[in-house]
């Protein structure tokens, strides 16, 4: 989703035009769009007076930023040490079966994208994953299936409403 010029201007002007705000601006853009569209990186670099090469370098350096469109919900499967030992790979396989797409992919409905993160910081809940702002822990195949089904029901409900 590309922001309208007016909306983008409003987003940028929430910050003074200085390079130190680059990451904050990128975070805001990604929150709105789900990823960093090329034209918005260009606009942000121009506004913040940062060379485009450096803005692009920052956008590609941080794992949290995506330069390609992602699903409506980004599933972050924790692959930190504790989750790794508690079979985070099994969580990924379970999601792959349910969504028909592998790590880094977006499902056919454009609803989910599967990613991994190094650690969510909730090791006591291992294996864990994060969808949007929600955390899900002590995952089993059954719990994962229920969580995904729940999201799908909600989406279907939204469409009907």
């Amino acid at each position: 989703m590309i922001l309208a010029q007016e909306k983008l201007t409003e987003l940028l002007q929430a910050y003074p035009p200085e390079r130190q705000h680059t990451l904050a601006v990128f975070q805001d853009i990604q929150k709105e769009c789900g990823y960093l569209p090329k034209e918005h990186i260009v606009a942000a670099a121009d506004y913040l007076k940062v060379p485009l090469s450096q803005a692009y370098a920052m956008a590609t350096f941080y794992h949290t930023f995506s330069l390609t469109p992602r699903g409506k919900h980004v599933i972050k499967v924790c692959d930190g040490t504790a989750c790794h030992i508690k079979d985070s790979k099994g969580v990924l396989q379970s999601l792959e079966r349910l969504l028909g797409v592998g790590l880094g992919g977006t499902d056919a409905d454009g609803l989910f994208t599967i990613e991994t993160v190094a650690c969510l910081g909730c090791c006591a809940l291992a294996p864990a994953m994060q969808i949007g702002e929600e955390y899900y822990g002590n995952l089993t195949d059954e719990i994962i299936a229920e969580v995904i089904a729940d999201y799908r029901r909600r989406e279907a409900g939204e469409v009907v409403a």
């Binding site: 060379p51 090469s53 450096q54 692009y56 370098a57 590609t60 350096f61």
Partner: peptide
Amino acid sequence: AELGNSAIETTLR
């Protein structure tokens, strides 16, 4: 960055 126009950078990581 110093002699040219900051056209290139190290990207990814």
